[in-house]
Amino acid sequence: MIQMFHVTKSYPGDPPVLTDLNLDIDKAEFVFLTGPSGAGKSTLLKLMFLAERPTRGQILIAGRNIARVRESSVPYLRRNIGVVFQDFKLLPTRTVAENVGFTLDVLGVPRDDVRDKSLKMLRRVGLEHKADVSPLKLSGGEQQRVSLARALVNDPAILLADEPTGNLDPALTVEIMNLLCDVNARGTTVVVATHDASLIARYQKRTLRLEKGSLVADEKGAKAARLMALEA
């Protein structure tokens, strides 16, 4: 589903953020992306949802080379990729349901359908009863669930989450992780960037470890958990 070949990303005047990266993530796979701050996790996610372009190398998403795709095609590719941000990126001037419906508005879905689908998605994340309140009135965990609902309402093939539990307490972290696993079980490819070792140890999924812009480990299951335990 996501393939990278010799991908390097650098900014003028600075050392490369990512260096000669190769990776292959299958359809419906769940992958943790980990590493210390500044290792290049967020940049790697940005390359995947086309917020950045690689300096060198090829990136294939669902078989399509996105490294050289035209700027005007970017929005259409993004519609297959849901993104969850650490800072939620919710609009305080819109209701929870309107925030979720944002993704469908872009597609030109009729208003009533947008409302129906948004409520259905909010039910899935357990927030249907908060549909008409402002996101400002929600707790951090609830806001992250709204952000997740927005990323998923369009039923994307890929879900990218950048530190989705970074601001949450352990109970809420489990809540969000369970939702991500549930989404993955339904066939969505999920990539979660995190530096939370306990999370990786607990869920025992494939883990890619970045250090100084290079991929230094790619482990699955218990091995990944052990790797992280050693790091911790």
């Binding site: 944002f102 872009v106 369009n154």
Partner: peptide, 15 residues
Amino acid sequence: EEIEIQKLVGGTDRF
């Protein structure tokens, strides 16, 4: 912020 989110969820410039 609204523009940024619209772009991130796949809104075209025209949209």
